[in-house]
Write a protein that binds this DNA or RNA. Sequence first.
DNA 1: CGCCAGGGCCATA
DNA 2: TATGGCCATGGC
Length: 213
Amino acid sequence: MMQHDYSLIFKKLHNHYGPQNWWPADSPFEMMIGAILVQNTNWRNAAKALHNLGNRLEPEIIFQMPEAELAELIRSSGFYKMKAKRIKAFMQWFEICHFSVENIKKRDKDALRNELLQIHGIGRETADVMLIYAFEKPVFVVDAYARRIFYRLGYDMPAAYDAFRLQVESQLPNDVQMYNEFHALLDEHAKSICRKKPLCSKCPLIDVCAQRY
DNA sequence: CGCCAGGGCCATA
DNA sequence: TATGGCCATGGC
């Protein structure tokens, strides 16, 4: 089987699109709430919900807020009753952590990941974006875009989330900033001109595609 | 009008 | 392990 050069993909995307400076949020807390709000929803609707929360977007306030009230405020994000429940479950955990992102950052990556996965409504992808963009841990995020792009490159990737993630991580340096940019770049690339026509002449991955097709 | 967007949970086999 | 149903809004 051919060796998939994930590092080369990253390099080409980075050269073409430049630094993405993700996640679009003013604080780690806002980032984490946004991560739940954006589950299976477009960012526009999630951002609208964040805007609607306005100055209520503070740990203590969200923690105290009745679930029904929170649900109405985040209605635009879709699945809003469920997401209100998920945010409240997350806040229970965050409160136990004394709302301290700095303290959480000091903890072991795998232990922290497993703890996040215990929270009802936090799955692998949501846990991983939180690990990178809030807690600065090096993790490769396996989202629909990553799957689609690697699939279109002809890469033979595992279907299971963690198998996919570990295969990519095993061949990349343990660099938080790199994973931070990689996920953002894959997102940007998926939304770009190559979305409908992945082998178009302007695609920065055209030569990688050409090796295969 | 139908489609889908930066998932995750749960029941079923 | 692997499908299928379910949750729901807003833009196009």
